[in-house]
Design a protein around this nucleic acid. Structure first.
Lengths: 217, 217
DNA sequence: AATATATACGCACGACCGTTCGTATTGTCT
DNA sequence: AGACAATACGAACGGTCGTGCGTATATATT
């Protein structure tokens, strides 16, 4: 009589899945989706290996659930707070600052989850890669829209049909470079360079200095 | 009587090492330094597993040799041809174009070798990571010097002490973003965006349009 | 109350991992 | 010529991987 999805009974199981996934996203952000192993995960979570296996069915399903969990954490850390800002340049600047904070504060132990697993996944050809591609396109749509909504405050971008796309590409590039640099060199220099580079870019496009004041090291 | 390094006898062994390493760099560029396995490598090379093991001593030494081999291939593909260009903006533009070609033509099967293995290695704490950090710093020194030698042709960069460093960071960021994008999305769109972004950036800094004419999709 | 479902466990399987033996062969040096 | 070092191989080691099986328990549905 109830719907096919009967969550009532699965309260215990969902709690277990959530606890395992919280460890999984950190482990995957450090070692990639292949470095994510059921045995290590079970040991860290204090449960049996076969339990983790039955909870997620297969390794691939575990990877997919891990990616989805990381996506929700990312939304909570960056997307949702940015949407709380008002339209326009203020939101665009907020996205940049929130993203840099998301990377620098190590919401995931290995920095940005999606950059950490992209290298491993891009060489494969399974559902995990497809999901990551979809999430990446989702990000570009979100960021490009934020740029487009800032056009009135970025007069330098007028008359260029691909202006928003190029700027979204440049911003993403610098965010990723800051993330990678901080992981590889174990310093915060990349974050300062990204803030300086993006701020200069926005100022060159005619942004008001007050609007970009959030982007200072 | 001869030097301690007697390469004469090792001709056969060196040839074997080279053949294995040529496969190793491709495999590592696709699967990372951890995905590089002695068994698969031996199978692909048509030799025994124990042979590969004895040729390189240990897994770590194999990884280090693979990184060194990739470094030399990268130098041949990008650094050396760029140094053949004259000083200044021409060389800087050549570096960008050579790098994009190096990534797009898949000199390594998995795109840029160093970006592919950086994710896995940055979470570890061994000699492989140190070597990759040193190579990355080597790259930044090289690129920053090329920017500095272009200062007379980039008047927009005057008066900014950290100008060359920021520009080198931005260029590297866009090159990496093009590389990652082409691998994840399996399209060449990222390369066009990187060429457009870097060209616009150089033009905005006062570069002559002739000097950057190489950067067109 | 009876049945079905979802956790959770222990156990074992085949496969692959990196490493290490013993051994044969080849090339280099004294 | 003889001693020595470097390839190359086959075989086996302990370890971990993902997966499947049987079983016990707790919850939900009938």
């Amino acid at each position: 009589m109830t719907t096919a999805i009967s969550d009532g009974r699965r309260v215990r199981g969902d709690a277990s899945r959530r606890a395992v996934l919280r460890l999984a996203v950190d482990q995957a952000s450090l070692s990639g989706l292949d470095g994510l192993t059921i045995g290590t995960l079970a040991s860290d979570a204090g449960v049996s290996k076969s339990n983790v296996a039955t909870l997620f069915g297969s390794k691939l399903d575990l990877q997919l659930a891990t990616i989805e969990a990381a996506r929700e954490i990312f939304i909570d850390a960056v997307i949702a707070p940015a949407l709380a800002e008002q339209h326009g340049l203020a939101r665009l600047v907020a996205i940049v600052e929130l993203w840099l904070n998301y990377s620098e504060s190590r919401v995931f132990a290995g920095g940005c989850f999606f950059r950490a697993v992209a290298a491993d996944a891009s060489a494969k050809d399974d559902a995990a890669r497809e999901l990551l591609v979809a999430i990446d396109e989702e990000w570009y749509v979100f960021l490009t829209r934020a740029v487009r909504e800032s056009l009135p405050e970025l007069p330098g971008l007028e008359g260029r049909a691909d202006g928003p796309e190029v700027l979204a590409f440049e911003i993403t590039a610098m965010l990723d470079a800051a993330n990678i640099g901080s992981l590889l060199h174990r310093s915060t220099r990349g974050y300062a360079l990204a803030r300086a580079g993006i701020r200069d870019r926005l100022l060159a496009l005619g942004a008001g200095s007050a609007a970009v004041s959030r982007l200072v090291p």
